[in-house]
Design a binder for these strands. Structure first.
Length: 508
DNA sequence: TCTGGGGTCCTAGGACCC
DNA sequence: TCTGGGGTCCTAGGACCC
């Protein structure tokens, strides 16, 4: 006997959805870890010239500092005693994991929305779903979060829908709790300003204000026809429903990534084409590395260019086959960049890959073919194990040029073909750690390296560079190579950083 | 010292196919 | 001769979220 499963429109009666939101999380973690900052204004974000605020502590918010505000403006507003800090994502991630584990003990069905935010569905847990029951559970959860994180607090909203739970968690921040009793949804919702609704940003808010719509109650008085006329079918109809508290979006625990991207805003607008090329290569390598670590590959390569005047253009190209090869991505990205006028200077450059598939589904043969098409002139060193084909300056000369910070030895040895895409060309064996920056476990931290993993693919058998932050890069190897030297680190502004110029990186 | 970086979703228009 | 219509894929841009 088989059943056809359908998604039923279940309108919940109970406040069985929690939205948990950690309060000013980045700043709270900093204040937890650095007692001298407690009680003082703390601003976390891009500290350098063009940075923006990620999170301001509540002490800083008093002075009007807000998320997404230019750091320069924050500095003008906040007092002398304010601490300005670069984010330490690894620390935030650890705290996040502690909290998510606690949520997982409350219900198996949790949806993590971001590093500091999650929905919890209590419907299937056997919890007492009365207002009193949910209130008691939420209070206990809040206490456990504060204890487990060493003092980082969370605000919780509990309601019969995601929409109301989310609004509720925001209402009494910080350290707040709002439970919306069944039947009181509209009374709760309608007095609030329209921008409390998810999906109502500055543009939508402005358009609504022009029509005299300021509260969600006002919005509920607008006809569906008007809303669709103003905002299009999807957005218009969505607003119509949300204004009536009609929201049956389920809590979904797993979501598949749709795109992977990396971008960089330069401290000063860049005009130099060579520099732009190099940045494109680094961004491509970063994206490809993340694709591979996620077991993904994509068919569409996108670039994003922001000009000095903040106008932004994108260009995209869709291949027939998915790739996770940084050099292929870089090649296409460069072609796309050549279609854009960069003579006036570029503020931001970005590279992305979308139309993703699990890489396991890809046809290895066609992928290899495609790569060969792109590099027809070059001898495919990959098919030979003749190192002379990729002759290069002696690695010792390269590696000794810049002193390494904390090199760990990498030993040469036999292949580990199982994770290599070109099994006949052994990836170097061994393991190593490259010191790249601040904290273990972050992109900027020491990067553990294992053979066949996280190795940039290179048919030409060239050594290759993967960029990471804080002025350091990690060197990675693949191909018919024997790695003799230790993994080293280099200053990012090293002029030899040309991932697309393999000979300068080959170690044979 | 104006405006980060990682995403998601939607729309509109053109190409192309049936 | 006049001009179909729906569906899908792709590209570019924009709004929005944390």
């Amino acid at each position: 006997m088989s059943y056809r499963v359908r998604r039923l429109r279940i309108v919940r009666g109970d406040p069985s959805i929690l939205h948990v939101d950690l309060d000013a999380m980045f700043a709270a973690v900093e204040q937890r870890d650095k007692p001298s900052l407690r009680g003082k204004p703390v601003v976390v974000g891009g500290v350098a010239g063009r940075g923006v605020v990620s999170t301001a502590s509540y002490e800083a918010r008093v002075f009007g500092v807000r998320s997404a505000m230019p750091m320069a403006q924050a500095r003008r507003l906040a007092p002398w005693s304010t601490a300005y800090l670069s984010p330490r994502f690894a620390a935030y991630k650890r705290t996040s994991e502690v909290v998510m584990r606690l949520l997982g003990e409350v219900s198996p069905l949790i949806e993590q929305v971001s590093i500091d935010e999650a929905y919890v569905d209590l419907a299937a847990t056997g919890t007492d779903l009365s207002v009193d029951g949910v209130t008691a559970l939420a209070l206990e959860l809040k206490a456990r979060i504060a204890t487990a994180t060493g003092g980082v607090t969370g605000s919780i909203g509990a309601a019969s829908s995601k929409l109301l739970a989310k609004i509720g968690s925001d209402l009494n921040k910080p350290d707040g709790l709002t439970v919306v009793p069944p039947g009181e949804e509209l009374a709760f919702l309608h007095p609030l300003p329209v921008n409390r609704l998810g999906g109502v940003g500055p543009a939508t808010e402005q358009r609504l204000h022009r029509s005299g719509v300021r509260t969600i109650g006002d919005l509920a008085a607008v006809s569906l026809e008007h809303l669709i006329d103003w905002f299009g079918q999807s957005h218009g109809a969505g607003l119509f429903r949300l204004a009536r508290a009609q929201d049956d979006r389920p809590v979904i625990s797993e979501r598949e990534a749709k795109s992977v991207s990396a971008e960089e805003t330069f401290g000063i607008d860049v005009t130099d084409p060579v520099r732009l090329k190099r940045e494109l290569d680094l961004l491509s390598a970063r994206v490809a590395g993340r694709l591979r670590s996620g077991g993904l590959a994509g068919r569409t390569v996108n670039i994003k260019v922001r000009h000095g005047d903040f106008t932004t253009v994108t260009r995209a190209f869709t291949r027939d086959h998915p790739t996770d090869d940084g050099r292929l991505v870089a090649q296409l990205a460069r072609r796309l960049l050549s279609e854009v006028d960069t003579s006036g200077g570029i503020r931001l450059l970005g590279v992305g890959v979308s139309t993703l598939t699990d890489f396991a589904q890809d046809d290895l043969f066609s992928e290899t073919q495609h790569a060969a098409d792109l590099f027809p002139v070059l001898p495919v060193a990959g098919i030979s194990d003749e190192p002379a084909m990729i002759a290069a300056p002696p690695p010792a000369a390269i590696l000794s040029a810049v002193p390494a910070d904390g090199p760990a030895p990498v030993t040469s040895g036999p292949s580990s073909p199982e994770s290599s895409k070109s099994p006949e060309f052994p990836a170097p064996e061994g393991s190593g750690v490259a010191q790249t920056g601040a904290e273990p476990g972050t992109e900027d931290g020491p990067v553990a390296w294992r053979p066949g993993q996280d190795v940039l693919h290179d048919e030409m058998g060239a050594g290759w560079v993967q960029g990471s932050g804080l002025g350091r890069v990690t060197i990675r190897f693949e191909g018919p190579l024997t790695v003799r030297g230790p993994v080293r680190t280099f200053a990012v502004d090293d002029p030899r950083l040309h991932p697309t110029d393999p000979p300068s990186w080959v170690i044979s």
